[in-house]
């Protein structure tokens, strides 16, 4: 279980991205975080694996305080938390294989991997991960030779290499053609069914309805809603997204 306790984040320039946010994520949940751009979704996800250090509050995962972990322990915690990004964050000039293998850097012999030498079983594991997202044949292409949807699948394969217990997905489909959204989210859903907890930020409400087991909504860094997708009625929607907001459905695009 992941416990977010009174987490606040103030950036050095004074921007208050998160204000006293608390909620729990039970193992096996598919938790979706919604909110406008700039509402603090990305900051929240990055606080969980401490790509960003929260200013206040605690994040406790299975009894371990992530926020207090020293560097070496933090790396061990991060190994178990896969992350998928809006911009995929692949090394474009490296091969798909290298990108996927790099998800394993927290586990393998550091000297060998520094020289770029990987054991055969890790390569096999990478091919399996690519096979799971359906692009094993692209292993030796350069990452930037792939389409956006394929790149995001490489991103998921890289997260899979970490053998994660939790996956953080930061707007994983926002840079993709809406028709590709389901194909990516279905992979995440599949992993979730296999027991990996998923925390995912999303824009489209119909995607939220389709995939979320629970929803947390942020507005200006404050948690304004926590519950199931079905509980988000018109009034709630206006509260989260503002008065002018109109619901757009990914399916209608």
């Amino acid at each position: 279980m992941l416990q977010i306790q009174n987490v606040s984040k103030t950036y050095p320039n004074g921007t208050q991205a998160l204000k006293n946010v608390s909620f729990d994520v039970k193992d096996g949940e598919f938790l979706v975080v919604i909110g406008l751009s700039g509402s603090g979704k990305s900051t929240l996800l990055r606080c969980i694996n401490r790509l960003i250090d929260p200013t206040e509050g605690k994040i406790i995962w299975d009894g371990v305080d992530i926020t207090a972990a020293p560097p070496a322990e933090l790396r061990n915690i991060r190994r178990k938390i896969g992350m998928v990004f809006q911009q995929f964050n692949l090394v474009k000039r490296s091969s798909v294989m290298t990108n996927v293998l790099s998800g394993r850097l927290g586990y393998v012999n550091p000297w060998m991997s520094l020289l770029g030498i990987w054991p055969a079983e890790e390569k096999q594991r990478a091919l399996e991960a690519l096979g799971r997202v359906g692009i094993a044949d692209k292993a030796h292409n350069r990452a930037d030779a792939l389409s956006g949807g394929q790149q995001q699948r490489v991103g998921i394969a890289r997260a899979l290499m970490q053998d994660p217990k939790l996956i953080l997905a930061d707007e994983p489909v926002a840079s993709l053609d809406p028709v590709l959204s389901h194909s990516i989210l279905q992979y995440l859903e599949q992993l979730n069914k296999e027991g990996i907890t998923v925390i995912c930020s999303l824009h489209f409400l119909d995607l939220v309805h389709r995939y979320a087991t629970r929803v947390v909504a942020l507005k200006d860094g404050v948690k304004v809603f926590e519950g199931t997708a079905q509980e988000i009625d018109r009034a709630k929607f206006k509260e989260i997204y503002g008065e002018e907001a109109q619901e757009v459905r990914a399916a209608s695009l």
Partner: peptide, 20 residues
């Protein structure tokens, strides 16, 4: 981006530079 992604995997600092 890639540097951030590699940090998130728990890779040691030198490796994030080497691969990212």
């Amino acid at each position: 981006g890639p540097l951030e992604a590699l940090q998130a995997t728990g890779a040691p600092p030198l490796h994030t530079v080497r691969y990212g």
